[in-house]
Design a protein around this nucleic acid. Structure first.
Lengths: 259, 259
DNA sequence: TGTGTATGTCTGTAATAGCAGACATCACAA
DNA sequence: TTGTGATGTCTGCTATTACAGACATACACA
């Protein structure tokens, strides 16, 4: 019943890969689940999931969340994540920079990165508007849907870009098809300028501004963005870009491990 | 029957366990390392570590940090840690509370938890003194060495406490031996009062104040602490305890997943 | 009552993962 | 040059594991 008809023979998955599948499933679900449900949702054998969940519980990577059965990400992941954060020491300064951007422009400011082959908002500061614009933190979004996406893949080769981004992610929310070649061309332009702006393609009322933040090795490892109502965006274009570029400079040492 | 001849038979370790051994090693080392060094440091076969590091790199759990070979904790762990943090939503309020405590008392305020069988400072706000007192974030410390330790194990049974804490952790930094029975007695008193204070046993000049923060199910899942010079601690004892208790109330809903 | 679904446990077994160890480099010192 | 240690790759063997599937239980609802 669960035999992948078209594909090759169902291969036996590695425990480690399954384990991280479980963790990622819980992360995106943002809610506890019992092993049974995890198994059915990620399409893994129940007995395997039960065993792995047991192992992960022993490690503190997962935790029992209620009286019965349901588990969620555990404290150990929190500690490991903190160690990453501390090593690449950007959170503190990043929050300050976002604060400054949001105050100065009154628009929503975001710090974004790639998570594997998706774009995610890592940190955000909402603007000072009656109706604020915001996004979900940590929610994966197809790279081609975002201004930052152009910058984040800007230093890859054409082949790397095509290989990284799932083909279906070029299908935009409105149903139209973004030609990968056109996307790559935009990425090249963006990488060269260090900035990319456009009327958002995930809605009809925002204009997005993104600037690149380079890490140690020249690469664009993150972006700073402003999300503005379209008319404001057009009106303040130069000012916003200047503000973003100045902010990016402040975060310039990002990605450099602390001394 | 489980023949637990610990050292006798060289057991073949599970990949998952080894993987988390690697992650924990890097976390505590706080610096990148190459697989060869990791293997020798954690006492694992080189070939196994090379394979596991490869798998973890593919998953984004580890990342190459420099041109060659050396790896450190990866971005995926950061995302997973963030998801934990968001779910148990305490960081933001916690930082505010620490800020308030540090401002009000001018002493160093800390938020502490157990990481497995060790005590760790999770967040900290230094006090407003010419010579500030501080600790390393995330560094494991033997539970019996700390005031918080009494509270954090206060809801376990005697047997659980003895099983949890490695025997050598009852050897205090000054070389003296803390009888586990005495420690457990202190833990009982602390659990009952919800507070524990003492002249620190890791140095000769601080007095520590700790209050319990209870999660959903009555348990003490974290503590708030103040670390003061001894004379100040004695002088302001009641005031500090009141401040901590008030702060703990503000964090009372901690551990409750967001609605 | 039976029937179906959701849950957790336990087993046997083929597939494979962890390991030992050989091999190949490179850097540097003697 | 030779020697020594640190580094990374590769292979084959077998102890272990990921899996299928049986079993057990609890709770629906007809």
């Amino acid at each position: 019943m669960d035999v992948r008809a078209d594909q090759a023979i169902a291969k036996r998955a590695r425990g480690l890969d399954r384990a991280f599948e479980i963790l990622d499933y819980l992360r995106l679900r943002r809610e506890a689940a019992n092993p049974n449900e995890i198994a059915s949702q990620i399409g893994a054998p129940r007995s395997s999931v039960y065993e792995l969940v047991g192992l992960l519980l022993r490690q503190g990577i997962l935790e029992h969340v209620d009286g019965e059965g349901r588990v969620f990400l555990g404290r150990k992941l929190f500690f490991l994540g903190n160690a990453y954060e501390e090593h690449y020491d950007f959170t503190r300064e990043c929050d300050r920079v976002l604060e400054g951007l949001a105050t100065e422009t009154r628009e929503t400011a975001q710090f974004c990165m790639l998570d594997g082959n998706k774009y995610v908002v890592v940190r955000m500061r909402e603007g000072a508007r009656p109706f604020r614009i915001s996004s979900d933190i940590g929610q994966p979004v197809p790279i081609p849907w975002t201004a930052s996406g152009r910058l984040l893949v800007g230093d890859m080769t054409d082949a790397e870009i095509v290989e990284l981004i799932p083909r279906e992610d070029f299908r935009l929310p409105d149903g139209s098809w973004l030609d990968p070649t056109a996307f790559i061309a935009e990425a090249r332009t963006a990488a060269h300028a260090g900035v990319f702006t456009f009327d958002s393609i995930v809605d009809s009322f925002t204009h997005c501004f993104a600037v690149a933040i380079a890490g140690m090795g020249r690469r664009c490892i993150a972006t700073l963005c402003l999300v503005a109502p379209r008319d404001d965006g057009v009106r303040n274009r130069d000012r916003y870009i200047d503000a973003l570029k100045a902010a990016a400079v402040r975060l310039g040492s990002i990605g450099v491990p602390k001394p």
